[in-house]
Design a protein around this nucleic acid. Structure first.
Length: 848
RNA sequence: GGGCGCGUAGCUCAGUGGGAGAGCGCUCGCUUCACACGCGAGAGGUCGCUGGUUCGAACCCAGCCGCGCCCACCA
């Protein structure tokens, strides 16, 4: 069999070769006859295909793959699908830039449409169906590129099991789940103030917000009190003055207590607004009394709601001040002031109104610069406004206790990640907003009746049958209506919105697992075992998946969540596209080899941010090459001993000691992997492997060549082949290519379908093993090496005499491997003497 | 403001009550018959700071400093 071992083994080309063979052999194909208990199922994160893959992806997907491979070798049938996240804003944005188009839903579909040739000028308006076609076209290309890279990285995904978050299955699942939530009242629509991105022109959910520190300015503005005296308030948003509906101070604030219930008058616009009390008003902030506008921030919304105030909205959905006055002005001046503001952007209006207030004498002093946190859509570039709109929500607020209980039920790796989940759930302040005023997404499967007067009756949505899903309400027609009744009095109109991307992604276990489309599969894989994901999307993806599974199946979607850290650049900044510090993985894979890149990734412990380190990839490459060479050597030494029939030979003490250590390693690696600590499993395996090469192989070399007779050689051969077999399997989850290559030299089948090594079987084969034998022998050999190095001699230099002083038990252990030490150290005369401490006296032969 | 994590050799990181470690980098040596994509050896640290618990602390406790992240109604 050793005939199959190449003369000069090399890493180059291993990836291409084995990718092809694994595909042909179906090595990673999921066997769907397996029952749930035999299955290990993974809720793979679908990467956003419109972005490019970066080393962060390689990092975390490698972690998952090592776990998948471990579980497969442990005998579980691994359900490891791959999804593509292709719906939503990132794709829309990429399509707009790539093709130079913009979606105009009012246009009709043009079947002849061809995208412009990268028009650098104006974006070409296209209809929604044309736009969606372009989205599909581009994502199809992106998915191909992603799959190539994943295969090259060696992910043991079953590539016959892929899904996309915009595909028909995903749409059906999203719509079905939505309709069921609607049916039991867990989904509802509401016309209410919502956070709104004025560039994307869509509502935004709490989970998509981020705070950004901005410089603003406090403007101290003078209101007129009931008796005509001045009431001064501080505001960073003076442009909202016409939207002011009340003043508010803390109920305990003695300064303002006399004013509660009275009326103040706004400058410039002369609106009379009540002076109210509310506990959210902070006496220390500004002057202690604030103006409430509809709506400047979410506190305004709370005050407005709880104090029962009217609405005087002035900001339109495009971020400009509306044309119509927010209320009936009582003075010509107010009209003049309004004319100065309307049509302006919020920022323009802010500058202008500051001037107007200064002119009228109602601005006290100069505006004072201040840095404050402002809410943004995480993908947006202008501060969010709050506008009133009709949106769909899923009820989460009244179920937070249940969600917290689910979080406690879930096994988190690492455990402290649970606190992120809990702080999110406890901080929820609104139901989950799932509707988006966008184009490339899953449509709401709803129509609304249009009355004879042309008014849309949102209160009585028309729903399709589940069997008809998915539907597109913009082209499909509800039961009982005909197509020509669309948007006509007495007819119907389709819901124009699409679902938020998380409303679909939160169903990845159902989509990947088949749910009702493939109920047989679903029974075998759901609830799943593992959700691997990054920590920054605990509040979105993880939370929302728990919500959906809780409502739909009354259980957790998976038992375990493995949270990966980030990849940091050398300056310890998170690698991200916007920072421009992203490194693309393909070049790395080609330069160092997939196994080497995986080695670096798998060295990053679960949940811990890890520095990008090409040095670690070089180390990984060195390890892979060492595996090739050491394996070749072991197989050459073991020769016919490998896989020979008949009774195994009696093992010598040194061999037993080495195999005993190996059994200990198997225990450690198995325990680490079972607790999702792949990094520890790798570290321990690697460490033992180098010792195996540096000490054991050197010690046993000449005996294996036959220097001590046939029986002694047979023992070495047997131990070597047992060790190589176990080591290859321990490394297989990390270095799938090189281990498969070596395995193929002398074994049948794939190492990735071979059973994970078992410590009890090793121990049974070994019998009694005294670890001291290997320890003492390695220590003695180390001292001999040291002496040779000190003498600037070659390791081949002959030693005339070596005398080992050590404690009696260690000397006894050393005696059992004395011949091996003598031969490895090229020692002519080898003496021992009892002593309290270990030392070795070495005399090199005269001519070295 | 609240919470979580981190702080160990120049760098990347292991180490959770009793000898301060690994790899890389650096220095020196070795044509060694598996591997020069190699082998051997060496130098290098007040384990963030202060106090406490303990016979004994890198490790447990308290406080502080620094870094990062998450959350928070941000007038």
């Amino acid at each position: 069999m050793s005939a199959a071992v190449p003369e000069k083994p090399a890493l180059d080309g291993l990836e291409r070769r084995w990718i092809e063979r694994w595909e042909a052999a179906g090595t990673y194909r999921f066997d769907r006859t397996a029952i749930r208990d035999q299955v290990y199922s993974i809720d793979t994160p679908p990467p956003t295909v419109s972005g490019s893959l970066h080393v962060g992806h390689v990092f975390s997907y490698t972690h998952t793959d090592t776990v998948a491979r471990f579980q497969r070798m442990r005998g579980r049938e691994v359900f490891y699908p791959m999804g593509w996240d292709d719906n939503g804003l990132p794709t829309e944005r990429r399509v707009q830039n790539y093709f130079g188009v913009r979606c105009d839903p009012s246009l009709p579909y043009d079947p002849e449409f061809a995208p412009p040739v990268r028009a650098d000028g104006q974006a070409v308006p296209v209809s929604r169906p044309n736009f969606v076609e372009l989205c599909h076209r581009l994502t199809a290309e992106d998915e191909k590129a992603f799959e190539e890279l994943w295969r090259f990285l060696g992910l043991s995904v079953d590539w016959t099991m892929t899904y996309a978050t915009i595909d028909e299955r995903a749409q059906r699942a999203s719509q079905r789940s939505f309709l069921r939530l609607l049916g039991v009242g867990l989904a509802y629509q509401s016309e209410a103030p919502t956070l709104w991105d004025v560039d994307f022109q869509t509502a935004v959910a709490q989970a998509e917000l981020e705070d950004r520190e901005e410089t603003g300015a406090y403007h101290r503005v003078r209101f007129a009190g009931p008796d005509g005296s001045a009431i001064e308030i501080d505001t960073t948003r003076p442009e909202l003055l016409p939207a002011c509906v009340a003043l508010v101070a803390h109920p305990d604030d003695a300064r303002y207590q006399p004013l509660f219930g009275a009326t103040a008058t706004t400058p410039l616009f002369g609106a009379r607004v009540p002076i109210t009390a509310h506990h959210l008003a902070e006496p220390e902030k500004g002057t202690g009394i604030a103006m409430i506008c509809t709506f400047g921030d979410t506190t305004d919304v709370a005050w407005w709601r709880e104090l029962g105030l009217p609405v005087r909205a002035i900001v339109q959905r495009d971020g400009r001040i509306q044309d119509a006055p927010p209320f009936r002005f009582e003075s010509p001046d107010a009209h003049d002031h309004w004319d100065e503001l309307r049509g302006k952007t919020v920022a323009q209006a802010r500058r202008r109104i500051a001037e107007l207030l200064a002119e009228s004498g109602d601005l006290v002093g100069e505006p004072r610069p201040v840095t404050h946190a402002v809410k943004y859509f995480e993908k947006g570039s202008r501060p969010l406004e709050i506008v009133t709109s009709r949106q769909w929500f899923i009820r989460t607020l009244e179920h937070t206790d249940a969600f917290l209980a689910r979080g406690a039920e879930l096994a988190w790796h690492p455990p402290y990640m649970q606190s992120r989940y809990e702080s999110w759930v406890k901080g929820l302040n609104s139901d989950w907003l799932i509707s988006r005023q966008r184009f490339f997404g899953v449509p709401f499967p709803l129509w609304y009746p249009v009355g004879e007067d042309g008014a849309v009756d949102y209160g009585h949505p028309l729903v399709p049958a589940e069997d008809d899903l998915p539907v597109d309400p913009s082209t499909d027609v509800p039961a009982g209506y005909t197509a020509d009744q669309r948007d006509r009095p007495g007819g119907f109109t389709g819901d124009a919105d699409v679902m938020d991307t998380w409303a679909t992604s939160s169903l990845t276990p159902q989509i990947a697992g088949g749910w009702e489309d493939d109920a047989d599969l679903f029974l075998r894989v759901f609830p799943m075992d593992l959700r691997p994901q990054a920590h920054e999307i605990i509040r979105t993806w993880l939370f929302s998946t728990v919500v959906r599974s809780h409502f739909e199946h009354n259980c957790l979607p998976w038992t375990d969540a493995a949270i990966s850290g980030w990849v940091l650049d050398p300056e310890r900044k998170k690698m991200s596209k916007s920072k421009g510090n992203v490194i693309t993985p393909l070049g790395l894979l080609e330069q160092y080899g997939a196994d080497a890149v995986r080695y670096w990734a798998a060295s990053g412990r679960p949940g811990v941010d890890t520095a990008f380190d090409e040095g670690q990839m070089r180390v990984g490459r060195r390890l892979a090459i060492k595996l090739l060479n050491a394996s070749r050597f072991v197989l050459a030494l073991a020769g016919e001993g490998v896989g020979a029939a008949g009774d195994p030979p009696e093992l010598m003490p040194l061999d037993r000691a080495m195999l005993g250590r190996l059994a200990g390693l198997v225990d450690e690696a198995t325990a680490a992997f079972s607790g999702y600590d792949y990094a520890r499993a790798l570290e321990r395996t690697e460490s033992l492997f180098w010792e195996f090469c540096d000490d054991y192989l050197e010690l046993v070399k000449s005996r294996a060549y036959g220097s001590q007779g046939e029986a002694a050689a047979a023992s070495a051969h047997h131990a070597l082949s047992l060790a190589l077999s176990a080591l290859l399997r321990l490394f297989a989850p990390f270095l799938p290519f090189v281990t498969e290559e070596v395995w193929s030299w002398w074994q049948e089948g794939s190492v990735h379908r071979a059973p994970w090594p078992r410590a009890d079987e090793l121990r049974a084969a070994v019998g009694d093993a005294d670890p001291l034998v290997l320890e003492a022998a390695a220590a003695a050999l180390g001292e001999v090496r040291k002496a040779k190095t000190a003498a600037r001699a070659s390791m081949r230099a002959e030693v005339a005499r070596a005398a080992v002083a050590d404690t009696t038990p260690r000397l006894a252990a050393l005696a059992l491997a004395a011949d091996d030490v003598k031969e490895a150290g090229r020692i002519a005369r080898f003496d021992v003497e009892p002593a309290d401490t270990f030392s070795v006296t070495v005399q090199l032969a005269a001519d070295g």
